[in-house]
Design a protein around this nucleic acid. Sequence first.
RNA 1: GCGCCCGUAGCUCAGCAGGAUAGAGCACCGGUUUCCUAAACCGGGGGUCACAGGUUCGAAUCCUGUCGGGCGCGCCA
Length: 643
Amino acid sequence: MISIAEQLKDLFSQALVAFMGEEGRNVDPLIRPAGEERFGDYQSNVAMSLAKRLGAKPRDVAAKIREHLLAEPTATELCESFALAGPGFINIRLSAGWMAGQLAAIPAAAPRGADRLGIEPVAAPQTVVVDYSSPNIAKQMHVGHLRSTIIGDVIARVIGFEGHRVIRQNHVGDWGTQFGVLCAHLKEKMPTALDRPADVHLADLEAFYREASLRDEEDAAFHERARAEVVALHNQDESTLRAWRYIVDESRRHYLPVYQRLGVLLTQADERGESFYADRLADVVAWFERARQITAPAGLFPDGAMLRVEESDGALCIFFVTASGEPMFKNPQGKPFPMIVRKSDGAFLYATTDLAAVRFRVFELGADRVIYVTDARQAQHFEMVFTAVRAAGWTSREAGSAEVKLDHVTFGTILGEDRKPLKTRSGENVRLADLLDEAVRRAEAMIRANEADPDKRRGFSEAEIRDVAEAVGIGAVKYADLSQNRQVDYVFSWDRMLAMEGNTAPYLMYAYARIRSIYRKGAGDNRGEWSVESGDRGQATEDRKQATGVVITLTEPAERMLGRQILRFAETIESVAAGLRINLLTDYLYELAGLFMKFYEQCPVLRAGTDEVRASRLRLCDLTARTMRSGLDLLGIRVVERM
RNA sequence: GCGCCCGUAGCUCAGCAGGAUAGAGCACCGGUUUCCUAAACCGGGGGUCACAGGUUCGAAUCCUGUCGGGCGCGCCA
């Protein structure tokens, strides 16, 4: 299936060619969803944009285009009417019969995660590297890691759904000076960890890190030993490597369960930390040192900007200069602000690692696109890295080949209700594990309160209560974040994210559970073919029959709106992927759930007047549920059968 | 000082590849349950889209400036 918007675009393109010749092929038909329901389903604004160019009145242009549309059988099959309105809008009303046919043609369900709802993968798949989460490994994961982890995960899923080859890269901080400190501290405080690493565990990584840092600050002799450990680490000293490995392994024991609980796809196999690039850094720096001066290839920047590689105060720097000799970046003193790639003491920094990582991703992983999901504060850093590698020619694998696209996806800070960065009462970072515990605890309390109310009781078992609480709690935290425009800071609020009203995970999950309930009630004579597999836990599918033979009718307004919304899933994913704007997907799902609720109120399913209507409505329920499940799955959020 | 992001209803936020009378949720007021999950649904009030110019047939959306807020700006990441 191709999205409705794409199909309309094609129809209008044909009409524009018929109207104005080949030139019309390059005109964007400006298809948009109708601004208001009474105007129809979609509208084209092309006539007004064309009028001046053609020296004609917009209404006349619109009328001409409409004539050509009406002469095209495909157009009249898809659309019931093309109406001229206002200054020159063409209002499009889709044919209910055509929409019903599109819906009926959606193939039977595949298991969760593989259900495409008939949506075709892209014709030309790319290799896309998504760099996300990337915690500093020696510390416990905290709220600061939440957004990168879940936003990046959704981007990876959406791009994968589109049909691209996705390579996840968890660029963990597992190298650098802090590891010297940690290794030195470990060797002295827990020598047994080196001999029997499997038997000794660090209960509190954060405390260990703090202890070590404190000693480093206060104890000069220790500080020296820590520096020596950094050198030993770089020189592959066996005992230091053992200490380092121990710390990295212990860290994994803490963060991998957090990933699993969050329902993100990252595994240990996706981990490609700073240490991985350690032995490539010298070469990267040598490359720039040899180049000395690089003029950017034409078209990359305005007017041939260049890089100058120079030592400054003993550090090796890349300076960015415009064609007119002005620095592209300045420090507060107005002096050129460079990217330092080697410190005066000879050590490398994160900029060096990032340069090495681009080179690795482009030339060894074969990336056509690299997406970095890190907070907005690093925008300037990545601007520099991207500028440098583009100028260096590292963004095209061979001369003349397509530029590798580099995207920095930024996001704001999570704030407390006091509008300051979210902290615990004692002013510390909120641990992610604690945050998730709290979310589940609150969800569980809500469920238990309902179970205590005779009118609301579902009769859940203890296991079900815990399972639903887990899904609702985690889902709420993720959804609240993902439904924001990611660029802005966002205010964290338990009450809002766990509310049943409004654009929240519990609301969507409730809508899904309602659909499921219909099927439980109507079990035995599933004319609508319940084809959605239940939740995560891999419950067997008794019935996954091909849903052929069911005729869908969209007569009631609520049916028509619901059906149309289901068909818009394809174009929603297109928009999400195009702008990496996840909240377009949450908005879509919220609207879908709302339209289902209205349908549910207005159109009896099991008690429908005729068998045909009943079967048609069951099929609409089925498609709604599958779309919701797939959409939530792209958000990494699990659905439950009952709530 | 320079750069990036932001300013939309009392609150939290959508909308910003220009398009018709600017939308949700919360809060507030009112209604709906012999009927498939009322954790729901329906209705109502509430706006100088920070401000001022400009481009355009048309601007919350694009451009310029002002004000206000956040973040970044040399050897941490």
